[in-house]
Protein backbone atom coordinates (compact mmCIF):
# COMPACT_ATOMS: atom_id res chain seq x y z
CA UNK A 1 0.00 0.00 0.00
CA UNK A 2 2.80 2.38 0.91
CA UNK A 3 4.52 1.51 -2.34
CA UNK A 4 1.60 2.67 -4.45
CA UNK A 5 1.24 5.65 -2.12
CA UNK A 6 4.79 6.63 -2.98
CA UNK A 7 4.14 6.49 -6.71
CA UNK A 8 0.93 8.44 -6.31
CA UNK A 9 2.62 11.15 -4.23
CA UNK A 10 5.54 11.29 -6.65
CA UNK A 11 3.21 11.68 -9.62
CA UNK A 12 1.21 14.44 -7.92
CA UNK A 13 4.37 16.25 -6.87
CA UNK A 14 5.80 16.22 -10.36
CA UNK A 15 2.48 17.32 -11.83
CA UNK A 16 2.26 20.33 -9.51
CA UNK A 17 5.91 21.15 -10.13
CA UNK A 18 5.20 21.30 -13.86
CA UNK A 19 2.18 23.49 -13.17
CA UNK A 20 4.41 25.89 -11.22
CA UNK A 21 6.37 26.77 -14.31
CA UNK A 22 3.42 26.43 -16.69
CA UNK A 23 0.89 28.61 -14.85
CA UNK A 24 0.45 32.07 -16.33
CA UNK A 25 -0.65 33.82 -13.18
CA UNK A 26 2.11 34.21 -10.56
CA UNK A 27 -0.37 33.68 -7.74
CA UNK A 28 -1.36 30.33 -9.23
CA UNK A 29 2.31 29.49 -9.52
CA UNK A 30 2.80 30.15 -5.83
CA UNK A 31 -0.17 27.99 -4.92
CA UNK A 32 1.03 25.13 -7.11
CA UNK A 33 4.45 25.41 -5.50
CA UNK A 34 2.82 25.15 -2.09
CA UNK A 35 1.11 21.97 -3.25
CA UNK A 36 4.43 20.66 -4.53
CA UNK A 37 5.94 21.26 -1.13
CA UNK A 38 3.04 19.42 0.43
CA UNK A 39 3.81 16.49 -1.84
CA UNK A 40 7.44 16.51 -0.81
CA UNK A 41 6.47 16.80 2.86
CA UNK A 42 4.08 13.88 2.44
CA UNK A 43 7.02 11.90 1.15
CA UNK A 44 9.02 12.79 4.25
CA UNK A 45 6.25 12.04 6.69
CA UNK A 46 4.56 8.94 5.30
CA UNK A 47 7.20 7.25 3.18
CA UNK A 48 10.59 8.19 4.52
CA UNK A 49 9.64 8.07 8.20
CA UNK A 50 11.02 11.53 8.89
CA UNK A 51 8.01 13.36 10.37
CA UNK A 52 10.02 16.12 11.98
CA UNK A 53 11.64 17.19 8.74
CA UNK A 54 8.29 16.94 7.02
CA UNK A 55 6.48 19.17 9.50
CA UNK A 56 9.32 21.67 9.58
CA UNK A 57 9.25 21.69 5.79
CA UNK A 58 5.58 22.66 5.89
CA UNK A 59 6.11 25.30 8.57
CA UNK A 60 9.13 26.88 6.90
CA UNK A 61 8.26 26.59 3.23
CA UNK A 62 4.48 26.61 3.11
CA UNK A 63 4.00 28.66 6.25
CA UNK A 64 6.63 31.32 5.88
CA UNK A 65 8.53 31.41 2.61
CA UNK A 66 5.61 31.00 0.23
CA UNK A 67 3.54 33.48 2.22
CA UNK A 68 6.35 35.97 1.65
CA UNK A 69 6.14 35.27 -2.07
CA UNK A 70 2.38 35.74 -2.04
CA UNK A 71 2.87 38.92 -0.11
CA UNK A 72 5.26 40.40 -2.61
CA UNK A 73 3.10 39.39 -5.55
CA UNK A 74 -0.09 40.74 -4.01
CA UNK A 75 1.48 43.99 -2.86
CA UNK A 76 3.10 44.67 -6.21
CA UNK A 77 -0.01 43.55 -8.04
CA UNK A 78 1.91 41.44 -10.55
CA UNK A 79 -0.79 39.88 -12.63
CA UNK A 80 -0.55 37.68 -15.66
CA UNK A 81 -0.35 40.53 -18.16
CA UNK A 82 2.91 41.70 -16.70
CA UNK A 83 4.84 38.97 -18.43
CA UNK A 84 5.10 38.76 -22.19
CA UNK A 85 5.47 35.20 -23.27
CA UNK A 86 8.74 34.27 -24.75
CA UNK A 87 8.83 33.12 -28.34
CA UNK A 88 8.20 29.48 -29.05
CA UNK A 89 11.75 28.91 -30.14
CA UNK A 90 12.93 30.06 -26.76
CA UNK A 91 10.54 27.71 -25.01
CA UNK A 92 11.71 24.78 -27.11
CA UNK A 93 15.35 25.58 -26.48
CA UNK A 94 14.69 25.89 -22.76
CA UNK A 95 12.79 22.63 -22.59
CA UNK A 96 15.45 20.96 -24.71
CA UNK A 97 18.21 22.13 -22.39
CA UNK A 98 16.27 20.95 -19.36
CA UNK A 99 15.52 17.62 -21.02
CA UNK A 100 19.14 17.06 -21.91
CA UNK A 101 20.16 17.81 -18.34
CA UNK A 102 17.62 15.26 -17.16
CA UNK A 103 19.00 12.69 -19.61
CA UNK A 104 22.56 13.28 -18.44
CA UNK A 105 21.58 13.02 -14.78
CA UNK A 106 19.55 9.87 -15.37
CA UNK A 107 22.40 8.31 -17.29
CA UNK A 108 24.81 9.17 -14.50
CA UNK A 109 22.42 7.69 -11.93
CA UNK A 110 22.20 4.47 -13.90
CA UNK A 111 25.96 4.11 -13.99
CA UNK A 112 26.24 4.15 -10.19
CA UNK A 113 26.51 0.81 -8.44
CA UNK A 114 23.55 1.18 -6.07
CA UNK A 115 24.27 -2.05 -4.26
CA UNK A 116 27.11 -0.37 -2.41
CA UNK A 117 24.95 2.61 -1.44
CA UNK A 118 21.56 1.24 -0.50
CA UNK A 119 20.69 -2.01 1.20
CA UNK A 120 21.13 -0.78 4.74
CA UNK A 121 18.76 -2.73 6.92
CA UNK A 122 16.45 -0.67 9.07
CA UNK A 123 17.91 -0.89 12.56
CA UNK A 124 14.50 -0.29 14.13
CA UNK A 125 15.34 3.01 15.79
CA UNK A 126 13.58 5.85 14.04
CA UNK A 127 16.34 8.16 12.90
CA UNK A 128 13.82 10.81 11.92
CA UNK A 129 12.72 11.28 15.53
CA UNK A 130 13.46 14.53 17.31
CA UNK A 131 15.54 12.77 19.97
CA UNK A 132 18.08 11.45 17.47
CA UNK A 133 18.08 14.56 15.31
CA UNK A 134 18.38 16.91 18.27
CA UNK A 135 21.31 14.99 19.66
CA UNK A 136 23.18 15.04 16.36
CA UNK A 137 22.34 18.67 15.68
CA UNK A 138 23.49 19.97 19.05
CA UNK A 139 26.63 17.86 19.37
CA UNK A 140 28.27 17.21 16.01
CA UNK A 141 26.81 20.17 14.15
CA UNK A 142 26.73 22.84 16.83
CA UNK A 143 29.16 25.12 14.98
CA UNK A 144 27.21 25.15 11.69
CA UNK A 145 24.08 25.71 13.76
CA UNK A 146 25.53 28.84 15.33
CA UNK A 147 26.82 30.01 11.98
CA UNK A 148 23.33 29.56 10.54
CA UNK A 149 21.91 31.78 13.28
CA UNK A 150 24.44 34.48 12.43
CA UNK A 151 23.48 34.06 8.78
CA UNK A 152 19.86 34.68 9.75
CA UNK A 153 20.75 37.84 11.61
CA UNK A 154 22.67 39.10 8.60
CA UNK A 155 19.79 38.21 6.30
CA UNK A 156 17.25 40.04 8.47
CA UNK A 157 19.36 43.16 8.64
CA UNK A 158 20.14 42.95 4.92
CA UNK A 159 16.51 42.52 3.93
CA UNK A 160 15.39 45.42 6.10
CA UNK A 161 18.07 47.70 4.71
CA UNK A 162 17.36 46.69 1.12
CA UNK A 163 13.62 46.99 1.24
CA UNK A 164 13.49 50.18 3.27
CA UNK A 165 12.24 53.25 1.48
CA UNK A 166 15.12 55.66 1.21
CA UNK A 167 14.56 59.27 2.02
CA UNK A 168 15.95 60.76 -1.15
CA UNK A 169 15.87 64.46 -1.88
CA UNK A 170 12.71 65.26 -3.77
CA UNK A 171 12.89 65.27 -7.53
CA UNK A 172 10.33 66.58 -9.97
CA UNK A 173 7.29 64.39 -10.38
CA UNK A 174 7.84 62.53 -7.19
CA UNK A 175 5.08 62.47 -4.65
CA UNK A 176 6.33 63.07 -1.18
CA UNK A 177 4.66 61.77 1.84
CA UNK A 178 5.90 62.48 5.31
CA UNK A 179 7.88 59.50 6.47
CA UNK A 180 7.32 59.12 10.14
CA UNK A 181 10.11 57.34 11.88
CA UNK A 182 9.00 55.71 15.07
Amino acid sequence: MLTSAFYFIAFVTVFFAVMVIAAKNPVHSVLYLVLTFFGISANYIFILDAPFVGIVNIIVYAGAIMVLFLFVIMLMNLNAEAEHRKSNAFLIVGAFAGGSLLLIVVDAIRKVDWKSVSGQESSGGAIGSIKVLGKVLYTDYILPFEVASVLFLVAIVGAVILARKEKLPLTVGQISHPVSES
Binding site: L48, D49, A50, F52, V53, V56, N57, V60, Y61, A64, I65, L68, F69, V72, V117, S118, Q120, S122, S123, G125, I127, G128, V132, L133, V136, L137, D140, Y141, P144, A148, L151, F152, V154, A155, I156, G158, A159, V160, L162, A163
Partner: peptide, 29 residues
Amino acid sequence: SAYRQDPPGQIFVFFIMAVAAAEVAVGLA
Protein backbone atom coordinates in the same frame (compact mmCIF):
# COMPACT_ATOMS: atom_id res chain seq x y z
CA SER B 1 19.47 9.56 5.22
CA ALA B 2 16.42 7.36 5.70
CA TYR B 3 17.73 4.51 3.57
CA ARG B 4 21.17 4.53 5.13
CA GLN B 5 19.86 5.12 8.68
CA ASP B 6 22.15 8.09 8.94
CA PRO B 7 20.83 11.22 10.75
CA PRO B 8 23.25 13.90 9.43
CA GLY B 9 21.46 13.86 6.07
CA GLN B 10 18.39 15.29 7.75
CA ILE B 11 20.50 17.80 9.64
CA PHE B 12 21.76 19.11 6.32
CA VAL B 13 18.16 19.59 5.28
CA PHE B 14 17.68 21.99 8.16
CA PHE B 15 20.71 23.96 7.12
CA ILE B 16 19.45 24.10 3.55
CA MET B 17 16.10 25.33 4.81
CA ALA B 18 17.80 27.96 6.92
CA VAL B 19 19.87 29.14 3.99
CA ALA B 20 16.82 29.10 1.74
CA ALA B 21 14.84 31.20 4.19
CA ALA B 22 17.64 33.73 4.45
CA GLU B 23 18.02 33.72 0.69
CA VAL B 24 14.31 34.35 0.17
CA ALA B 25 14.30 37.25 2.59
CA VAL B 26 17.20 38.98 0.89
CA GLY B 27 16.15 37.95 -2.61
CA LEU B 28 12.62 39.25 -2.27
CA ALA B 29 13.98 42.48 -0.83
